[in-house]
Design a protein around this nucleic acid. Sequence first.
DNA 1: AAGACCTACAACCGCACAATA
DNA 2: CTATTGTGCGGTTGTAGGTCT
Length: 262
Amino acid sequence: MKPFRAINLSSSSDQNEEEMDVRKGPWIVEEDNLLVNYIAVHGEGHWNSVARYAGLKRTGKSCRLRWLNYLRPNVRRGDITLQEQLLILELHSRWGNRWSKIAQYLPGRTDNEIKNYWRTRVQKQAKQLKCEVNSKEFRDAMRFVWMPRLMERIQAASRSSTAQPDVYDPNKSLQIPGSGIPMNPGFENSGASSISLDTQFSDPSDCYNVPGNYYSDSACNGFGSYPGQLGLVENEGSLGGGESLESVWNEENILFLQQQLS
DNA sequence: AAGACCTACAACCGCACAATA
DNA sequence: CTATTGTGCGGTTGTAGGTCT
């Protein structure tokens, strides 16, 4: 984590005494310890009380955020995996910026982290393609290039680890490998044609432990049969962290898409 | 070597909504 | 019914560290 410079913004002379005591900015280890210890004894919730009685000069909101995004057990840190990337793209296509809802399907990831991922990585790609992130053009690009490519790489990695032969079966249903979540064939009119995840998974964490399936896209027509045509960069296909989207959105793909979009 | 620029992400802010007094 | 308080969510900002020139 990148530490912020320690600051205390509460120095205005016309603030009342209580407001002047409120700390802002980066949390220090001592504060983290106070918060963790308090929650260990009293449990989560009642954040204003936590702030008041744990000896923290923080707002309840600040305590809640620090706990949920950083201190809570089982918070996953580090790079977003390929499967997680695919899941985010798919779920965002259905729900838009419903970060907390999307986060429910990525155990250990916080809405804040997913939101940051979207803003820093996905929006950057939209910018490179010179289109709006919420435009149909960019969503098509995601659906017909990015997501299939992620699928390929996930499958390539799983093949290399299990040594199973690849069977590309167009009749198989669309699913995100390792998640059990079906791909949404009606990308641009997600409301009408999508399958409700709410009814599929009573517990979001269930969706992470369903055997994978193969991706196919017989409905792909907006950009023809892209993935095979694009000369996409072949690479290691690791399932772990450290994968960059730039290897999917290489210069050639971006140029090609820009031509299609213009 | 140093300054400018870029990236990633923790943290804050404002708003909406629900529960309670 | 209204006001207050607590909580959660999405948008935005600020900063450290990395990269580029």
